[in-house]
Computed example of a mutant assay.
Amino acid sequence: MKRIIASLLLGCAIVATPAPALAQTNPAQDAARRDTQSGKALPLRQIEAIVFRTLSAPLCSNVRNSDNCYEYLGPAYDQRAMAYRLKFMRNSRVTFVDVDARTGRVLNRAR
Protein backbone atom coordinates (compact mmCIF):
# COMPACT_ATOMS: atom_id res chain seq x y z
CA MET A 1 0.00 0.00 0.00
CA LYS A 2 2.84 2.39 0.87
CA ARG A 3 4.45 1.67 -2.50
CA ILE A 4 1.25 2.52 -4.36
CA ILE A 5 0.87 5.82 -2.50
CA ALA A 6 4.55 6.68 -3.07
CA SER A 7 4.17 5.92 -6.79
CA LEU A 8 1.06 8.07 -7.04
CA LEU A 9 2.77 10.97 -5.26
CA LEU A 10 5.79 10.71 -7.54
CA GLY A 11 3.54 10.62 -10.61
CA CYS A 12 1.68 13.72 -9.42
CA ALA A 13 4.96 15.54 -8.81
CA ILE A 14 6.15 14.79 -12.36
CA VAL A 15 2.84 15.88 -13.89
CA ALA A 16 2.85 19.07 -11.81
CA THR A 17 6.28 20.12 -13.13
CA PRO A 18 5.81 23.26 -15.24
CA ALA A 19 6.16 22.75 -19.00
CA PRO A 20 8.81 25.49 -19.50
CA ALA A 21 11.12 23.60 -17.16
CA LEU A 22 10.86 20.58 -19.44
CA ALA A 23 11.08 22.52 -22.73
CA GLN A 24 14.36 22.81 -24.56
CA THR A 25 15.45 25.99 -26.28
CA ASN A 26 17.02 26.30 -29.70
CA PRO A 27 19.61 29.14 -29.83
CA ALA A 28 19.31 29.57 -33.62
CA GLN A 29 15.53 29.83 -33.39
CA ASP A 30 15.81 32.33 -30.55
CA ALA A 31 18.28 34.42 -32.58
CA ALA A 32 16.00 34.35 -35.64
CA ARG A 33 13.06 35.47 -33.51
CA ARG A 34 15.06 38.33 -31.96
CA ASP A 35 16.40 39.50 -35.33
CA THR A 36 12.91 39.42 -36.86
CA GLN A 37 11.33 41.26 -33.93
CA SER A 38 14.03 43.94 -34.00
CA GLY A 39 13.56 44.45 -37.75
CA LYS A 40 17.03 43.20 -38.68
CA ALA A 41 15.66 40.17 -40.56
CA LEU A 42 12.59 39.43 -42.66
CA PRO A 43 10.04 36.99 -41.23
CA LEU A 44 10.66 33.37 -42.19
CA ARG A 45 7.30 33.10 -44.00
CA GLN A 46 8.31 36.00 -46.24
CA ILE A 47 11.72 34.38 -46.95
CA GLU A 48 10.00 31.09 -47.78
CA ALA A 49 7.55 32.79 -50.16
CA ILE A 50 10.45 34.42 -52.04
CA VAL A 51 12.33 31.12 -52.39
CA PHE A 52 9.24 29.07 -53.30
CA ARG A 53 8.62 31.41 -56.27
CA THR A 54 12.16 30.78 -57.57
CA LEU A 55 11.93 26.98 -57.64
CA SER A 56 11.85 25.27 -61.04
CA ALA A 57 9.06 22.94 -59.93
CA PRO A 58 6.12 23.30 -57.52
CA LEU A 59 6.09 22.25 -53.89
CA CYS A 60 4.70 18.77 -53.31
CA SER A 61 2.16 20.19 -50.86
CA ASN A 62 0.67 22.29 -53.72
CA VAL A 63 0.19 19.55 -56.32
CA ARG A 64 -1.66 16.26 -56.53
CA ASN A 65 0.86 14.43 -58.71
CA SER A 66 4.07 14.43 -56.68
CA ASP A 67 6.35 12.90 -59.34
CA ASN A 68 8.35 16.04 -60.08
CA CYS A 69 8.02 18.43 -57.17
CA TYR A 70 10.07 19.81 -54.29
CA GLU A 71 9.47 18.56 -50.78
CA TYR A 72 10.28 21.33 -48.30
CA LEU A 73 12.35 19.89 -45.45
CA GLY A 74 12.72 23.09 -43.41
CA PRO A 75 14.92 26.08 -42.60
CA ALA A 76 18.08 26.69 -40.59
CA TYR A 77 19.21 30.14 -39.42
CA ASP A 78 22.82 31.35 -39.22
CA GLN A 79 22.90 34.34 -36.86
CA ARG A 80 26.45 35.43 -37.74
CA ALA A 81 25.79 35.44 -41.49
CA MET A 82 22.21 36.66 -40.99
CA ALA A 83 21.12 34.07 -43.54
CA TYR A 84 18.63 31.25 -43.82
CA ARG A 85 19.36 27.92 -45.45
CA LEU A 86 16.23 26.27 -46.78
CA LYS A 87 16.43 22.56 -47.53
CA PHE A 88 14.44 20.80 -50.26
CA MET A 89 14.32 17.31 -51.76
CA ARG A 90 13.35 16.50 -55.33
CA ASN A 91 13.75 13.10 -57.01
CA SER A 92 15.90 11.86 -54.09
CA ARG A 93 18.31 14.81 -54.43
CA VAL A 94 18.75 17.42 -51.71
CA THR A 95 18.95 21.11 -52.64
CA PHE A 96 20.03 23.89 -50.29
CA VAL A 97 19.03 27.49 -50.93
CA ASP A 98 20.89 30.17 -48.94
CA VAL A 99 19.02 33.45 -48.50
CA ASP A 100 20.05 36.79 -47.01
CA ALA A 101 17.70 37.25 -44.02
CA ARG A 102 17.84 41.06 -44.30
CA THR A 103 16.84 41.37 -47.96
CA GLY A 104 15.45 38.01 -49.04
CA ARG A 105 18.02 37.81 -51.86
CA VAL A 106 19.01 34.27 -52.84
CA LEU A 107 22.73 33.95 -52.19
CA ASN A 108 23.49 30.40 -53.29
CA ARG A 109 21.93 27.16 -54.51
CA ALA A 110 23.72 23.89 -53.84
CA ARG A 111 22.78 20.35 -54.81
Rank of each mutant, 00 (worst) to 15 (best):
R33C: 00
P18A: 14
A19M: 14
C60T: 04
G74Q: 07
R90L: 10
D30C: 02
M1V: 07
L44K: 11
M1P: 02
A76S: 15
L73S: 11
D67N: 12
R3D: 14
S92D: 08
L42E: 09
A6C: 05
N62C: 00
V99I: 14
A81K: 10
K87G: 03
P20Q: 07
V94I: 15
Y77I: 06
F96I: 01
Y70H: 05
D78F: 03
G104W: 02
A83Y: 02
R102A: 15
A32G: 06
I4D: 02
R93S: 13
N62Y: 08
P27W: 02
R93K: 15
F52K: 01
C69G: 08
T103V: 01
P27G: 05
A16W: 06
Q79I: 10
A110G: 09
P58D: 10
G74L: 06
V99W: 05
R109T: 15
R80A: 15
R109A: 12
T25D: 07
A19R: 05
A6P: 00
R34I: 14
R93D: 13
I50R: 06
P75K: 01
S38P: 00
R64G: 15
K2V: 12
S56I: 01
I4Q: 07
A31V: 00
K40G: 00
R105C: 02
F52C: 04
A41I: 09
T54Q: 15
S38E: 13
Y70S: 04
K40C: 04
S38N: 07
P43D: 12
V15I: 15
S56Y: 01
R102T: 13
R93Y: 08
L10T: 13
L44W: 08
Q37I: 09
G11W: 02
F52V: 09
L22V: 07
A81D: 11
R85N: 08
F96N: 12
Y77E: 04
A32E: 11
Q79G: 03
V99L: 01
S66D: 06
S61H: 02
S38D: 09
L9A: 13
L44P: 05
L73C: 10
C69Y: 00
E71I: 03
P43I: 11
D35A: 14
G104L: 06
E48P: 09
D100I: 07
R102S: 15
I14D: 06
Y72V: 11
A19W: 05
D78V: 14
D78I: 09
P27Y: 01
L42F: 09
L10N: 07
I5W: 06
A76G: 05
R64D: 12
G39L: 10
I14M: 07
V51T: 02
R53D: 13
R90A: 11
G104V: 09
